[in-house]
């Protein structure tokens, strides 16, 4: 039953068209077809969070999404956040606070943080840890990630209050 369906989508403000097998996961499509290997794949059952992308404005697991479901969608991946020369403020904060070691989990954290900074109050570190609970990091022990996010939240709140 191997056949392909046509999809048209927008990724990081660029238009793409492709033919995909229905069984292809969105994560594999982004990595193997579009070459956007910033989106990582750890578990393929929704547990680790490293494949998190933004689909039509909200964060989702790309391993629990089919490539055919990206038809007509707007996607943002970690590549859309910033470049090595021009990093996004979230990437800066992670760097400043040593919030990564091997970096495998980092794309998922960055995308999650991008969403929760806009949607959640994150009043204390407990709330930050809860909001990040869907992203697993094997290296850092989380403390530095929480510190980076705390810095970003403080900056955000200062901006909102001024």
């Amino acid at each position: 039953m191997s056949y392909k369906l046509k999809i048209a989508l927008n990724v990081n403000s660029e238009s793409f068209e492709a033919d995909v097998e229905p069984r292809m996961l969105a994560s594999d499509f982004l990595r193997d077809e579009l070459g956007l290997t910033g989106t990582h794949v750890g578990c393929e059952h929704g547990a680790c969070g490293t494949c998190t992308i933004i689909l039509n404005g909200v964060s989702v697991r790309s391993c629990l999404l089919l490539a055919v479901q990206l038809d007509e969608a707007n996607i943002e991946t970690v590549e859309g956040l910033g470049t090595t020369r021009e990093m996004h403020r979230i990437q800066h904060a992670f760097r400043e606070h040593h919030a990564l070691q091997c970096g495998f989990c980092t794309p998922g954290f960055l995308i999650t943080v991008r969403e929760i900074l806009d949607t959640l109050p994150l009043r204390n570190d407990k709330e930050i840890r809860e909001a990040l609970s869907g992203n697993i990091c094997r290296c850092t022990g989380y403390d530095h990630i929480v510190k980076a996010v705390r810095t970003l939240v403080n900056e955000r709140d200062k901006r909102l209050n001024s």
Binding site: V58, S59, L64, S133, G134
Partner: peptide, 12 residues
């Protein structure tokens, strides 16, 4: 709902 999975899973 706060207890259902995580942010990205609750979105979907």
């Amino acid at each position: 709902m706060v207890h259902v999975a995580h942010v990205a899973i609750r979105n979907r």
